[in-house]
Amino acid sequence: MSSIVQGAQVRRRPNSQSKQAWNRFKKNYFAVFGLAWVVLFIIVGIIGPWVAPYSYSATDFLNVNQPPSALHIMGTDQLGHDLFSEILYSIRYALEIAFGATLVSFFIGVALGLWAGMKGGIIDTIIMRLVDFMMAFPAFFFDLILVVKFGRGMGPILLAIGVVGWSGYARLIRSLVLGLRQGDMVEAATCLGASPLRVARLYLLPNVLSSMLVSLAFGIPNDLIAQAGLSVVGMGLAPPMPSFGNLVAQAGSMVLGYPWMMYFPAGVFALTLLSFLFVADGMNDALNPKGGY
């Protein structure tokens, strides 16, 4: 026995895989800048409504269409709303919808994708045809139908965007699970007596999650765009709740006279979208050093 024990020293890796990924991420300046902005965005989303100088519904008819000034640092709109406060509130709602909707899509996608990948056969066929249908059906049109049907509140919009966007996640997770399902790991777990549900939860899901992370990061800006798109056609959050889509759509008709009403919300929104994309792209490069995803 002693001879066996000797050769068995446990060697610690100098760097964990996540540390290495972070080191690769750090080298991508765009991604780091994006991450900084995303973090700022999230912080503002949380504390924004408390630090906003005015309420989003506070109208001030003596000060409509004001250019930026000390009192209203981003000016006011045609109803005298303080644009800065509106943007702070918009960030809060954008954040809720983006993360909420992505989470909804993610959960539906993971559940159906795992199920299809594990079971195979007829269930797989049915779920994948459903995925094909969701992919082929114009997502924005589907969003519109759902919003028209269920209303323009926070919850309905969140669910509408979420329910429409799951197909990509389902397809990805199914393909990853198919690669693992026939492998030794699943067989070993089965041999230990693990139920299929346990195999899915403890073996398959943790092993596919890091690959899902990237597509999750790409999903957030997509949902932000979907939300803004709804506002542009007048089907977004019902006024007076502000959202980037609403602000930009309103400003469209005033852009010649009062361009700052367009510049500020559109600028912040564009920067945000870009930042999320940079972060997602940086994560993709950092987590898959061999490239591709």
């Binding site: 492998g183 030794d184 790991m185 067989e187 070993a188 403890l202 073996y203 943790p206 092993n207």
Partner: peptide
């Protein structure tokens, strides 16, 4: 293949 039969996340 013990590597393949063990869960990398466990």
């Amino acid at each position: 293949d013990p590597q393949a039969s063990l869960n990398a996340r466990m």
